[in-house]
């Protein structure tokens, strides 16, 4: 029996999707607590309806539930993202000016991201941070790949314009 009600299948669905659902809701609203709640809520709904949801549909079911949860209810807050020190071992070779300039750029990028419409920001971050393909994001949002390309294009354009001060 290939059923989401089976605990093994359910827990594997949980492991492979919960973090992305969390990020997805966080990118939209900038609220960690609500993002955690959305993960629980989506999986509770999936568990309750496990007999009715085929395993291959489970993923889009989860995103639909999570998305509908705060639709028109929650106001977007500031999204705060951390920047990993991926080059920490090389940092000593960089000049203090360079480090400062880098920090300033990150600040500009943060502001520009928060100024983006919620759907453009979500698409941009899912692609850049979570490495999601346009097709996957299109599935989550329930729109066409082309619409996601458009959002990505507009997101990049707006970010650059904001950063370059146009």
């Amino acid at each position: 029996m290939n059923n989401v009600c089976e605990e093994q299948i359910f827990s594997s669905v949980f492991k492979s999707n919960s973090k992305t659902i969390f990020n997805y809701i966080y990118y939209k609203y900038g609220n960690e607590e609500k993002a955690h709640d959305a993960v629980s809520e989506a999986f509770v709904k999936l568990w309750e309806n496990c007999a009715k949801v085929a395993p291959e549909k489970a993923k889009s079911y989860l995103y639909t539930v999570a998305n509908n949860l705060y639709l028109n209810v929650l106001k977007a807050e500031k999204v705060r993202l951390k920047y990993a020190d991926k080059h920490s071992n090389t940092i000593s070779h960089e000049s203090p000016e360079f480090v400062l300039e880098e920090k300033q750029f990150q600040k500009k990028l943060d502001d520009a991201l928060n100024a983006l419409p919620e759907n453009q920001r979500t698409t941009f971050l899912l692609n850049r941070i979570d490495g999601k393909k346009y097709a996957e994001i299109a599935d989550m949002e329930g729109v066409s790949v082309k619409a996601i390309e458009k959002r990505m294009h507009l997101a990049l354009k707006s970010l650059r314009e904001k950063i370059d001060g146009i």
Binding site: R80, K82, A84, F105, Q106, L109, R128, I129
Partner: peptide, 8 residues
């Protein structure tokens, strides 16, 4: 810059 970004 965005490649260094991390979600919570």
């Amino acid at each position: 810059a965005s490649s260094k970004m991390e979600a919570p």
